[in-house]
Design a protein around this nucleic acid. Structure first.
Lengths: 126, 126
DNA sequence: ATATGACTTAGACTTAGCTCTAAGTCAAGC
DNA sequence: GCTTGACTTAGAGCTAAGTCTAAGTCATAT
């Protein structure tokens, strides 16, 4: 699979894919005799995982650490689990904060819809 | 209330508070005769709101637009509601993505805890 | 055989959101 | 009256994560 196809498949850009490879998040991807990347199944799975985690805001540095530990083998299982647990906890906190803001936005929108404009003046409400 | 007290109250830095003021997100905050900021109740409510929205990832530019519309008065009510709805929808999408990543992290952690290490090799699983 | 268009590289540039620095003012304590 | 420490300013610097540029290679269509 070419870089263009992969980029389209996952909604990334060619640049981003090469960037991820450069920083060691994926690959190194096999290249044909004229130096053109040909992504295989394992590459695609890794990219899909990375994309999911990146879109949730996990830092590249952390993801790199994880894939590095993975490559180091079974000895790093404990450290990997710890890393995942830490990231999960951080993510949970972020989700909570976002839900709070979400509720608050909805409250405000409700006030607009009900024309309760006085309530909006108290910016701190709810 | 001094900048230091406000910063501590909300878990921000003095720099961030001055930065928010500089870009027009808050204030301008009243200053005493020797030029030192003294935050009032309205300032605090605004800061609390901004902090909540910022911690959910709403861009400063968007928040500035909102507070500017607010200051322009009742004519902008429709535009304000639209802005809030747009941001709510964007936020909803982000929350969904984060929940997806959250579930996936938990699945992986579960595999680690149950020592089902083969499953981890399929990075794309679930 | 030459032009086109997709790929390659290294490295410079961009953006958002702070964060830090330098130089200065001022009130309070010694 | 001098020092200390908290504040002030303008503006430079930083970090993360891309994004873009320039120069080059290569396979294919004309």
């Amino acid at each position: 699979m070419t870089i263009k196809e992969v980029a389209e498949k996952f909604g990334l850009t060619n640049d981003t894919l090469r960037y991820y490879e450069k920083v060691g998040l994926i690959g190194p991807v096999k290249k044909n005799k004229s130096g053109i990347r040909d992504y295989n199944e394992a590459d695609l799975k890794r990219i899909e995982f990375i994309k999911c985690m990146r879109s949730a805001g996990l830092p590249i540095e952390v993801l790199k650490k994880y894939v590095d530990l993975f490559d180091e083998g079974a000895d790093t299982v404990g450290e990997r689990r710890k890393l995942l647990e830490d990231q999960r906890d951080i993510l949970k906190e972020k989700i909570d904060k976002m839900n709070e803001a979400y509720d608050r936005l909805n409250y405000k929108i409700k006030m607009y819809n009900e024309n309760k404009l006085e309530d909006l003046l108290k910016e701190g409400k709810q």
